[in-house]
Design a protein around this nucleic acid. Sequence first.
DNA 1: TTGCTCCTCACGTCACGTGAGGTGGC
DNA 2: TTGCTCCTCACGTCACGTGAGGTGGC
Lengths: 156, 156
Amino acid sequence: MQSEQSSFFPDTDIIWVTTDSPLETSSNDRELMTVSEAAEEFGVTPRALRFYESKGLLTPMREGGARLYRRRDRAQIALILKAKKFGFSLLEIRDMVKAQDGYPAGQSLRLSREKCRAQIKLLERQLEEVQEAIAELRRMHTMLSAPFADRSSLQG
Amino acid sequence: MQSEQSSFFPDTDIIWVTTDSPLETSSNDRELMTVSEAAEEFGVTPRALRFYESKGLLTPMREGGARLYRRRDRAQIALILKAKKFGFSLLEIRDMVKAQDGYPAGQSLRLSREKCRAQIKLLERQLEEVQEAIAELRRMHTMLSAPFADRSSLQG
DNA sequence: TTGCTCCTCACGTCACGTGAGGTGGC
DNA sequence: TTGCTCCTCACGTCACGTGAGGTGGC
């Protein structure tokens, strides 16, 4: 459970995922926000934010039952969405969130270089799949629609 | 329910999705195959094929309960997987499968040009997302891991 | 009889969507 | 009182995964 490392040089096998600015995605620097406001802010649904919370990714304030999202909660949301974009599951993200606790600078997700590499590989494969699909759909769209039309006179 | 069209020139707003060869993906020209054999052939699980069948996408032969996949069934599987790669849902694919009934050449999926265009747009958006994610992960991987390391001396 | 493949339920998973029914403040 | 947002169940969706329990032919 203890992680003994050099006190000066941090673990080089660990990458800390951060957002450039705590709230890079918006100019909104309000102290507190409701679910629907925060959801709106990040282009997700209130349901999604409640769901992330139920999975332990988020812990907003409460005021008589109602959720209130502080700046740090919103920074956390930004990190979650970034990790999701990277293709990580909510379970993986939860672990990355938990692992940020010991980190002094606060808002950042712990990610091993190994896992980073693996994720790049995974996304690269996805990329190829999508590129192939687009190419084929374009070819089909360009071609005459009917399969018995003479295709030989057309370039793919 | 009736589709009245020019009898000579087929509907130009319809694209027929086909596989280049009935069984392009394999050199296996056996008459009949079991679930696990067919699944193996296409790199999917037997469960997936049974699931597609339960959704009305597939109708293999039966021999005393056991499923037997003819060449046309396997050609159908190839079409389904192609459509899946294009990003269509099984529900959409089912409709495309149903719409192939009136088509004389048999194995092909009906797809409107409009929907084809929309799908290309959708995949293009996906592509950008994935490309951005890869770029950012690569940047992070290249950079020194710690957020308090001096990044200014490194190019992204 | 053992081993292998096949089968049909049927519940689990992942990331939410979608009502249902109820509360709180202007 | 009406209207709006908030809340908590809890079931639905999509594309399968994963046993559970049973059958059939070599």
